[in-house]
Each structure stands twice: as structure tokens, then as C-alpha cells.
């Protein structure tokens, strides 16, 4: 068996990692608050539409909801699934390639193949 090595952190490393963890936690909470806010806004818009408030037609509400949804997916991926940190370049490339193909192919169908 190869022996397991224990490496102690120096005080400087310890404080650095603590500071990083703190920053990460702060941004996560901020983003969480933002996401809750976006969700509240989304629900309010739908209620406004249902109660016939002027200016909240479905042509305004639906695209805005999609926009908010996209923002939330981005926040989810980058802040809660840590894609903003280093070493996630390759997964990002594969996810975006997959998403691009997933959008492009149906787009081809609805625009130039089946009209």
C-alpha cells in the first residue's frame, strides 16, 4: 500500500481559503436573493396579466418570463454549480455546444424545413 500523506495548511493558506469561502458564500446569497426577486417579479407579472392591468399583455409577459428564466438558468449554473470558478472550461464548451445543437436543429426545422 502506498501511504497517505497529510499536508498541513500554513496560516496564510488557511486565511486565504477562508476568505475565498466567505466571498463565495456572499455571492451565493446575493444571487439567491436575486433569483427569489426574479421569481416574485415573474409571478406578479402573471397576476397583473390575469387581472388585466394595462401594459401587461401576453406579448410582453411571455418574452419577459423567458428572459428571466434564461437569467435564472445562468445564475444557477454559474453561481450554484460553480461554473464561474476555474477549471470548468471544458464542461462549459460541451454544454454550450450541446445547447447550440439543441437549439439550432429545431430552429432549422421550424424555419427552413417545415414551414
Amino acid at each position: 500500500m502506498s501511504e497517505v500523506q497529510m499536508i498541513k495548511r500554513s496560516p496564510a493558506e488557511q486565511s486565504l481559503s477562508q476568505r475565498r469561502a466567505k466571498e463565495s458564500m456572499r455571492s451565493q446569497i446575493a444571487m439567491f436573493a436575486l433569483m427569489i426577486f426574479l421569481t416574485l417579479v415573474s409571478f406578479s407579472m402573471v397576476f397583473a396579466h390575469l387581472n388585466d392591468v394595462a401594459g401587461f399583455s401576453k406579448f410582453f409577459v411571455i418574452p419577459t418570463l423567458f428572459l428571466f428564466a434564461a437569467v435564472q438558468v445562468g445564475l444557477q449554473l454559474y453561481y450554484f454549480m460553480h461554473m464561474n470558478e476555474k477549471g470548468h472550461g471544458v464542461p462549459q464548451m460541451f454544454m454550450f455546444t450541446g445547447a447550440m445543437l439543441g437549439f439550432l436543429i429545431p430552429l432549422t426545422f421550424v424555419t427552413i424545413v417545415w414551414w
Binding site: T97, L101, L104, I105, T108, I112, V113, W115
Partner: peptide, 24 residues
């Protein structure tokens, strides 16, 4: 590798997808 995913319909030119799809 990328372009390989954008050309599948060239196997189907005679299916009748129309001139726009065939041209692209």
C-alpha cells in the same frame, strides 16, 4: 467536427424540403 452537425439534410435533397433548405 462542428460543421459535421450542420449538413445532415444534404442526404435528403430529393425528399422535397424546398429550395431554401436545399440551398442552405
Amino acid at each position: 467536427g462542428f460543421l459535421g452537425f450542420m449538413v445532415w439534410a444534404h442526404h435528403m435533397f430529393t425528399v422535397g424540403l424546398g429550395p431554401t433548405a436545399n440551398a442552405i
